[in-house]
Design a protein around this nucleic acid. Sequence first.
RNA 1: GGGCGGAUAGCUCAGCGGGAGAGCAUCGGCCUUACAAGCCGGGGGUCGCAGGUUCAAAUCCUGUUCCGCCUACCA
Length: 884
Amino acid sequence: MKEELMAKGFEPEKAEAKWYRYWEEAGLFKPDQNAEGAPYCIVIPPPNVTGTLHMGHALNNTLQDILCRYKRMKGFEVLWQPGTDHAGIATQNVVEKSLAAQGTDRNAVGRERFIELVWEWRKKYGGFIINQLRRLGCSCDWSRERFTMDEGLSRAVREVFVRLYNEGLIYRGDHIINWCPRCHTALADIEVEHEDRDSALYWVRYPFADREGYLVVATTRPETMLGDTAVAVNPEDIRYGSVIGSNVILPIVKKNIPVIGDTYVDPAFGTGALKITPAHDPNDFEIGRRHGLELIKVIDDDGRMNELAGHYAGMDRFECRKKILEDLQSEGLLEKVDPYRHAVGHCYRCKTMIEPLLSKQWFVRTKPLAEAASIAVKKGKTRIYPSTWEAVYFDWMSNIRDWCVSRQIWWGHRIPAWYCRSCGGITVAMEAPVGCKACNGKELEQESDVLDTWFSSALWPFSTLGWPDKTRELATFYPTSVLVTGFDILFFWVARMMMMGIHFMGDVPFRDVYIHALVRDAEGKKMSKSKGNVIDPLDVMGKFGTDAFRFTLAALAAQGRDVKLSEDRIEGYRHFVNKLWNASRLVLGNLGEEAGLGERRIYTLADRWVLTRLGQVAGEMEKAFDEYRFNDAANICYQFVWHEFCDWYLEMAKKGLYGNDAPLRLSTRETLKEVLSAVLRMSHPFMPFVTEDIWEKLSYTDGSIMKAPFPERSEHPEDREALTEMEKVMGVVGAVRAIRGEMNIPPSKKVHVVIDIHEGEEKIKSLLTDNIYHIESLAKVENPVIDIGLKKPAGSVTSVVGSVQVHVVLKGLLDFDEEKRRLQKEIAKRDKDIDMLAKKLGNKGFVEKASPDVVSEVKERYDALSLGREKLLKNLHFFETIND
RNA sequence: GGGCGGAUAGCUCAGCGGGAGAGCAUCGGCCUUACAAGCCGGGGGUCGCAGGUUCAAAUCCUGUUCCGCCUACCA
């Protein structure tokens, strides 16, 4: 054996660095325009520039890489389009933090300088996560890397904004928005996290202005009462029919406000009377608009009470609440306080409680866009896998609200709108206009807000391919083939890409959407830094190797279920990488220089079997990949490589390799080489590094395994006879092994075996005779005898395989009582099945209504089991006679 | 409040109308010339509970309990 060819174990770090550089330098990640197959394209969900690779990225990108590598091997022209996202708030936060560390802030350095600093930061650290993706083995075309703030993509953003504005799909308007007093920006509805909090429901008395008594309202936010402009009751509510139209005195402020009737009010909640604060509550805003109520804003951008809050001005909103409650109490206007638990909105980035505020914002009118996006999925133009997410998608699309796209931060695409100082008119344009569109005034000021980060992300599938220019890439790869993403951004991102893609490209952005699960820890908890249960992908790759890590992710990625990851699992799959390595050592260590045998090549039963299985497995994997069943594809591969190729085929191949039969040896080498080659190729999408490393040793001249074809079912026609014959040989070997195992006979001790063939089954006799070598070597047997009608030897233990009786001679080692117990157990096992089958066959309904195939199959099974049982019984009697 | 998903071997899960499976763990035997990161064998489950449909249900339907998650303008 050529020991020098392969090291004792696979060394991941070396191979990973070596092969990744080779692939990239050889341009193997670039789409091959000479590929015979159709184009195949995936756009990467762009990670934040501020990000570092976490488990979510690792799973997401591993799955994409598996698809890309697989499709390349299937002959497609593959483009995996990479890039990063400028991540407005997140990135701004990072740079602000470093400014704070230097004792300054963004206002001190000014907008222009601040943005320069962000760019500098990006230049320095922005490539971090990209290099981590390289470490994962991602076969992205890095020469096409994009950034959402690139000149090209920024142009696309402006183009889209201007066009939507001109079409009336973007407008600027008054709205109650979700305001984060800490981040100082508006948040979209879906950026608000709702969480149940213990709070209180305060019952406050509003005295009538023109009569005795008072109306009691229930509120969770007494501090907003300073901005109340009405109290609403349901007009259907008989308790309050007479008070609508009268006035109450707003406590503390001592101002008259009207009582109005609005059906929004739920008579069953609280007192059935609702205080209305149009400037600080989205519902109140709507009600206020219906009734023409005044808007009084009493809380400012910092979450503090403003000058309209009277002597509360300057207080923090929570401090003010306390003070107001005290004041109400002392005036006898606080009726009672109930403990109350309800959902409160928080900022998804900093967890600060959201303050609904009235302000002017830019909105995208989403209704018409959403409708088209909905129809596209209904018509199957885009398929969502797993399909359960379709319902969620439709639900969101039909309840969609206008999308607030303005953000009050500096880092991002500045909204291309200019306000005229003289007439106040708005001019929206691609570039800074020379004059106001309305009055041609020259004093213009650009909108200071930037766009929501997701605005540019929504254009990603076409902006990265060159839009609005008509590029070859756009023509070739749009619509892209599949989008692979987690469900957490189904709304943030996927839905919006659908809307924008359909509107601007006239076609969906992707044919398929594959939604994968979330990666959780071994207990099923979400990984988070605060919980300390984070597994760092880079640590894991260093510890177990990237291939093992990738394989684990794929094997655990069952549809519709979260991935629970623990290091134990990864370690388990590292063993698989090692197994593949060692199997290859065996094969490569025994290959010679000989040329092909051609016509003279011999195909043994094992050869025919393994080649047939190879074809079946290739077909099964193809089907699994087509349906995005990554876990199935991985497990099919694992099962075949380990438990069929290694456990059975390699063991049987040793006969040819180590024997003296020269033609057989040459044939075996050829088959081994053929199967190993296929095994490497079918494993490559999961484990790119180790497969490339072995591939090089298997055939240097053929180039990278990335360019090799994925095994095809059609290459290996199904040899059904080989399957059933192999099954019989394996059965006999298994029977002997089981007896040895149960009797604790060490492998070093060979046993004598008598194999009794059922009458008339000459074919089985010759099959087992032909393969007697394998039975001897795999089951550690010596002097086997095979014939029809053989007697049970003295001191033997018997196992029945189908119709074959396998007597293992143990002589003095045999414990009669134990053997009787074993036989009884075997019989009982069969009895259970036989009873069940007999019941079925005795059931008229079954025989008449079940399909004939099923019935005859049951019948066959029943016969086989009965025959086996009969033989076991005979053996049992044998012992009973001896004992007598 | 609404919706979705899960409940199958000790653990993690696959199977989703006709013989209860895998990996890990566990127990027993082995350093058998690719691999002890390994090989061979064994044990272990009324498939959450209750009904129903069917000749046949882990698998379909209804209800129910317990977990997750998503979503929401009942103050």
